[in-house]
Computed example of a mutant assay.
Amino acid sequence: MPVSEPFSPLQREVYDIVYASQEAGIDAIKPGVRFADLHLICMRVLAEGLAELGVLPGSAEEAMEPDSMFYRRWTLHSFGHMLGIDVHDCAAARPDAYHEGELSAGDVLTVEPGLYFQPDDNLVPAELRGMGIRLEDDFLVTAEGPVVLSADLPRQAEEVETWLAAQRAAGPRPP
């Protein structure tokens, strides 16, 4: 949610980068896709966005190299995780059933990329410091494509602003 109403131009720009990352991940969800590849798809979009913001010291390609991965300074976590009996149903999973595995029909997972700029990070412009954006939605993997389990929530920046304005106009809810 934007702290201000509506998003500031820079908040919107970062939100749109994270949204594009999430959309790229969602578009790739189907049985047979490797979990690790889904991660790389989302991270590549974040790295490209960081390069466009002028944050990366080089290109997105250079930042994505396994011996660099400089973009990770601002991502802090993977693109998402499996859901099941436990919210993070992956902690005790065998690598071949999770990080090194493939998605299967019936799997449920989150797609929740994010960018986080620490308040004291002198490697980013001052206007980015202290900003963090994560978009999280839940999906069921099917042969026909992903089913959005959190479809009733606003996702695009304009939808979030409209929803927030309606919530603020309605006033506080009784306890």
Rank of each mutant, 00 (worst) to 15 (best):
A105V: 13
D96V: 14
E112R: 14
S104K: 15
G106D: 08
A93K: 01
H88M: 13
S104E: 15
G80H: 00
D86L: 13
V111L: 11
P113C: 11
L109S: 01
M82Y: 09
E112F: 04
S78L: 05
H81Q: 07
H81K: 01
F79M: 15
G101Q: 03
V87S: 11
F79V: 08
H81S: 07
D86A: 14
V111S: 06
L83E: 13
G80W: 00
A92N: 13
S104W: 10
F79Y: 14
E100S: 07
P95W: 04
Y98F: 13
A92F: 13
P95T: 01
G106S: 11
V108T: 15
R94Y: 08
H88W: 13
G114Y: 05
A93S: 08
E112D: 15
V108A: 12
G114R: 00
D86P: 03
T110R: 00
V111E: 02
L103K: 04
H81W: 08
A93L: 10
D86M: 11
I85Q: 14
G101E: 04
D86Q: 13
V87E: 12
G106F: 10
L83K: 14
H88G: 06
G101N: 05
C90V: 06
G106A: 12
A93D: 00
H88R: 12
L83Q: 11
G84H: 10
M82A: 10
H81N: 12
L83D: 02
D107E: 06
E102C: 08
V111Y: 01
E112G: 15
E112W: 00
E100M: 07
D107R: 02
M82H: 05
I85D: 15
P113V: 07
D89E: 14
L109N: 03
P95H: 04
I85F: 12
S78V: 02
G106V: 09
E102T: 12
V111I: 15
G101D: 06
G114E: 04
D107Y: 04
F79E: 02
D96Q: 14
V108Q: 12
H99E: 05
V87D: 13
G101M: 00
A97L: 08
V108D: 05
E112Q: 15
C90G: 10
E100L: 10
R94N: 07
M82K: 06
G80K: 02
T110E: 11
D86F: 11
G84R: 06
P113Q: 09
R94S: 10
P95Y: 05
C90Y: 09
G80I: 02
A92S: 13
H99D: 03
E102A: 11
A105C: 11
G114V: 08
T110A: 15
A91K: 08
A91H: 03
L83Y: 08
G106W: 05
A91W: 07
A97D: 03
H99M: 09
L103G: 04
V87A: 10
H99F: 08
E100Q: 08
C90R: 04
D107K: 00
V111F: 03
D107A: 06
H81D: 02
P95M: 06
H99S: 12
G80E: 00
A97K: 01
E100V: 00
V111P: 01
I85Y: 12
A91F: 08
T110M: 08
H88P: 05
G101A: 09
G80D: 05
V111Q: 00
V87N: 13
D89L: 02
A91S: 11
C90L: 07
L103E: 04
